[in-house]
Amino acid sequence: MRLKVVLLGEGRVGKTSILFRYIRNEFQEKQQSTLQASYMDKRIKVGSVDAQLSVWDTAGQERFHALGPIYYRDADGALLVYDITDSESFTKVRKWVKELRKIVGNDINIVIAGNKIDLERNRQVSEAEVLEYAKSVGASHFYTSAKQNLGLEECFNELATKMVAQNKAKFAGGVAGLGVPKGGKSKLVVVDDTGGGKKSGGGSCC
């Protein structure tokens, strides 16, 4: 199952760093700004489902937003990132939610990530406000730190689980062999091989 994810958020909140850490386990303190968009993918297992996460990392600067729809138009999920030490960046998240809901409706699963949690001491964005907002728009919220590799697996797990569930609902009965995970959370397991998807990857569902 191919799942398209788009990363959105203001400049320098850490979108690219999140992706590099999550996919390659690499971190660079000084990451070049992303222009327009870049792409990375990763094979994961959601419950018993083999999935390929195709992630589009977009540019943060307003100037490049005109091209945003190219990337989120047919995305299954969006990870909206803000920087907990920068209240302005959270305002941008609200804008993105509005735009996504307006343009692609409820078909897109949204997860909000408060990045740079390692800089908790400089926090500017109030937790209560964020949680309340996330709830009001039906999005999950996670704290992450690309630098310290915190919360990223959970964040992408959640998004992938939502997307898989939605895809299944969409193609209900149409795809053989995809059991619906029942009860409890799914867990992602990275599958090394690229072939088949026959590997049992047992015990991934808890």
Partner: peptide
């Protein structure tokens, strides 16, 4: 602000620019 955000990300591998 936009410029200041970008400056530290200029040519990351060349210390001179930092």
């Amino acid at each position: 602000r936009q410029i200041l955000v970008d400056l530290p990300r200029t040519a990351p591998s060349i210390p001179l620019f930092h």
